Computed example of a mutant assay.
Amino acid sequence: MSKTMVSRCTIKKKKNNDNLYVKVKNQNLTLSRQITINAYTKDSSPKEFLPVYIDDQPAQQDTLEPEAEKVYRIDVSNIEGKVKFEIIQKKGSTGIKVSRNNKNSTSVEIQLK
Rank of each mutant, 00 (worst) to 15 (best):
R33F: 04
N78W: 01
G95W: 02
A68E: 15
A39T: 09
R73L: 05
D43H: 10
K70E: 10
T94I: 09
A39C: 15
P66L: 03
T94R: 09
E65D: 11
D62H: 11
L29N: 06
S45A: 08
Q61P: 00
D56L: 10
N78E: 13
K23F: 05
I88H: 03
N26H: 00
Q27I: 05
Q89P: 01
I37P: 07
E65T: 09
K97D: 10
G92P: 00
E86G: 07
F85D: 04
E65P: 00
P51Q: 11
Q57Y: 08
N28I: 02
K23E: 15
G81F: 00
K91C: 05
A39Y: 06
V22L: 04
S77L: 05
I37Q: 02
T94V: 05
N38Y: 12
N28M: 10
P46N: 04
I88N: 05
I37S: 04
I79A: 01
T41D: 12
S44Q: 03
I35S: 04
K90L: 10
G81S: 00
D62G: 03
I74Y: 03
N26C: 00
Y72R: 08
G95C: 05
T36D: 09
K84N: 13
S93D: 11
S45M: 10
N28V: 01
S44A: 14
E65K: 13
S93F: 01
T30I: 13
K97N: 10
P66S: 07
I87E: 01
E65C: 07
P58R: 02
Q89L: 13
I54G: 04
N38R: 15
A39W: 02
I74T: 05
R73D: 05
K47Y: 06
I87N: 02
G81P: 07
A39F: 04
Q27F: 05
E67G: 02
K90M: 08
T94G: 10
N26S: 03
Y72P: 09
T63K: 12
S45V: 09
L50D: 06
A68W: 06
Q34N: 15
K82N: 15
P51L: 09
K84E: 14
Q57T: 11
N38H: 13
I88F: 02
D56E: 14
P58A: 03
K47D: 07
I96K: 07
D56C: 08
S93M: 04
V76T: 14
S32N: 11
E48P: 01
A59F: 04
T30L: 15
V71W: 01
Q57K: 14
V22T: 01
V22I: 14
F49G: 04
D56K: 13
G92Y: 08
P66E: 00
Q89C: 07
Q34T: 12
S32R: 12
K25E: 14
L29E: 12
L31K: 15
Y72F: 15
P46Q: 01
Q60N: 12
K82L: 03
I88Q: 08
K97R: 11
T30G: 02
S45T: 10
L64F: 12
L64T: 08
A59Q: 12
T30F: 13
D43R: 11
